[in-house]
Design a protein around this nucleic acid. Structure first.
Lengths: 146, 146
DNA sequence: GGCAAACCTTCCGGCGACTGGACAGTCGTG
DNA sequence: CACGACTGTCCAGTCGCCGGAAGGTTTGCC
């Protein structure tokens, strides 16, 4: 099958497949006489593995490691678990950050609607105005997840 | 003050300050005779505003809009709230995605440790093996937040 | 056989929000 | 006047792709 068919069956964009080949996540495909990449069911499996792992938020690097373990008959379950656990820890961190941001934003929005402060205080807070007791809800140093 | 001092006082990296100027988030600084950028307290305020807003996860584009509203005397609180609410909605979406990922990962990890399945099933799940009832926990199509 | 549509190829550039590094000029101090 | 700390510009890289250009191939239809 050609790359387009593989893309359709795997749910991975053809461009992305070429990219994965380029960065070595999947092996370079064999070429037909016309120079087109040729794929088999085996490659489809591998690509679906990649898609699912990416869908769970694993980095390409992690996926690469998981693929290696998948192809390694002498693998240890603990290695796989370690990668998964580390990933869960990262996700936890991101969730905590986002929840914290959401809390602060909701506080700001709420105080903006209430009548207990003169104007919408979001901007004042961001500007670091000392209208309150100096405790600005927006004075955060968390790293922004992008 | 020079850019280094501004960086120290604002908590924003000097490189980042130059970058902000380049993309127009902050106005181009005046230069001294030596070509160095010169800043005043006003610029420090602006930059702290930016830092706080970024800390709350606002995109640079949003921050730009917030800054414009901040400098607009005829601004409406509702405009600011709208930006903040939209941002909260985005954050909510990301949180939901991450929580969903975490759930699936934890299920996989758990079933990997338990004795009710032969081997660590994470890899089998990712490979899409039909060892179970065909419902693979990892068969997700959620977009990965990067 | 001719033509268009739908494939496929490679290469380049851009997204967001920076960060690091190279190389050069400038400033303050000993 | 040498040295280090600072500043300037410019370019490249990060991550995980995606879009488009310019070209070759295949397929299907008249």
């Amino acid at each position: 099958m050609n790359i387009g068919e593989l893309a359709r069956q795997s749910g991975v964009n053809a461009k992305t497949i070429r990219y994965y080949e380029e960065i070595g996540l999947i092996p370079a495909a064999h070429r037909g006489d016309n120079g087109y990449r040729r794929y088999r069911t085996q490659d489809l499996n591998r690509l679906q593995f990649v898609r699912r792992a990416r869908g769970l938020g694993f980095s390409v690097e992690d996926v690469s490691a998981l693929l290696a373990l998948y192809n390694d008959r002498s693998r240890h379950s603990s290695d796989v678990r370690a990668i998964a656990r580390r990933h869960v820890a990262e996700i936890d961190g991101k969730i905590r950050e986002l929840v914290s941001m959401r809390e602060m934003l909701n506080e700001l929005i709420e105080s903006c609607q209430g009548d207990h402060r003169p104007e919408c205080p979001i901007l004042q807070d961001l500007a670091g105005a000392d209208t309150d007791a100096g405790t600005s809800a927006a004075d955060v140093r968390t790293k922004v997840p992008t």
